[in-house]
Structures are given as structure tokens and as C-alpha cells.
């Protein structure tokens, strides 16, 4: 299986608070990219000893070649779901790397060049389920990042989630995709730094 895009080493960090579903999101995203698209993916995680509320992050290194060092060094894309995470990890972003925030939670961004969508508010108001925010985010990623293909992500959802929750998650995914399309209609077809 040959991946459609050639990726040298793409480093992505999903960050926020424990309980926001960041580790699940990393798992689904990684499974989709690795199993459906055929990329080499190393997903690592870091979290505090607390079950909820502590800092939580999930890092993905995506490449067309085998990955040696599994941790990111300079991020191509940082996703921040809390102000604290945004403040803390912004400095790890490489020159020209992109920042995607939940702008209902991150009020103050360190740069004016960023993507912002209110994932948590969307999940709460349109779906009535604040827990679905991570899948709304996945939908947005499927639109914004060229090698994150919606079909593969849906397949990833099917393999890593129990059928009981599949329908509501797919709904959240679709919502994220349409909202991202509405706000950012023109996106790049090949990933380049700005």
C-alpha cells in the first residue's frame, strides 16, 4: 500500500486537558493514517497522574519512511484545546508551522495566523454532547490537512470505536468537516508552511 502523498516527517501535536478525548483522537487519527493510508505513524502520549483536568497531549509523527525517533522535535501543526496548552506548546511550533485552536476555549492566540473553530461549543449546541468535540476536531482536520482523507478517517473510526458510539461520532465528524469547509473554503492540496 503506497500512501498518496510523500511526507518527509510531519509532526503534529494534539494538546489540551485530560477528559477532552485527546488520546482517543490521536488513536483514531493514527489508526486511519497507518492502517488505511499506509503511512508510518508513531503516536506517543503524555499525561499527568490525574484522570481529568491535568494537562494531556498526544503527539503524532507521520512519514512515508520508517520513523526512528518517535517524539516530535519541531511541530508542523499544533492543535490546542486549552489556553494553557496553546501558551506552553506554541514555542515548539516550527517556523511557518500552523496553529489550530478551539476558539471557544483559547481566547488569546500568540499569532494572528491561525485556524480557529469553536469545537466544544459546536459539540455542545449542535449535538448536545460536549464529549464529541474531539470528533468535530477530527472532521475539521480532515478538511484542513491534505493527507488526512475523510474516507480513511471514517474507516479509522469504525475500527477503533465500538459500534454503539459510531453513529454519533460520525455525525460529529461530519459537522466538523462542514464547519471547517464553511469557514476555510480554500485549503492547500499539498501541505506547505505558510
Amino acid at each position: 500500500m503506497k500512501p498518496p502523498y510523500e511526507i518527509q516527517r510531519f509532526e503534529l501535536r494534539l494538546s489540551g486537558l485530560g477528559g477532552q478525548g485527546i488520546l482517543t483522537l490521536g488513536k483514531v487519527l493514527g489508526a486511519g493514517l497507518a492502517l488505511e493510508e499506509g503511512y508510518f505513524v508513531a503516536q506517543t502520549q503524555s499525561y499527568g497522574p490525574e484522570a481529568r483536568g491535568g494537562a494531556s497531549r498526544s503527539d503524532l509523527v507521520i512519514s512515508s519512511q520508517p520513523i526512528s525517533y518517535p517524539k516530535p522535535e519541531q511541530l508542523d501543526l499544533l492543535v490546542a484545546l486549552s489556553q494553557e496548552a496553546c501558551n506552553q506548546y506554541y514555542r515548539h511550533l516550527k517556523q511557518g508551522g500552523y496553529l489550530l485552536v478551539d476558539d471557544s476555549l483559547v481566547k488569546q492566540t500568540p499569532t494572528n495566523i491561525y485556524w480557529g473553530l469553536p469545537f466544544t461549543t459546536l459539540a455542545k449546541e449542535k449535538l448536545g454532547m460536549v464529549q464529541a468535540a474531539n470528533m468535530v476536531l477530527l472532521g475539521a482536520l480532515a478538511h484542513l490537512v491534505p493527507f488526512v482523507v475523510p474516507r480513511a478517517m471514517k474507516k479509522g473510526l469504525e475500527t477503533s470505536l465500538s459500534p454503539k458510539f459510531l453513529e454519533s461520532n460520525l455525525k460529529a465528524f461530519q459537522l466538523g468537516m462542514t464547519q471547517a469547509k464553511k469557514k476555510y473554503p480554500n485549503v492547500q492540496t499539498q501541505w506547505t508552511s505558510f
Partner: peptide, 9 residues
């Protein structure tokens, strides 16, 4: 911890 908590194919 890193090896045990890394996900890969």
C-alpha cells in the same frame, strides 16, 4: 514508558 505507550502499526 515511551516504548509501552507508543502506538505504531
Amino acid at each position: 514508558e515511551i516504548t509501552a505507550h507508543t502506538r505504531e502499526k
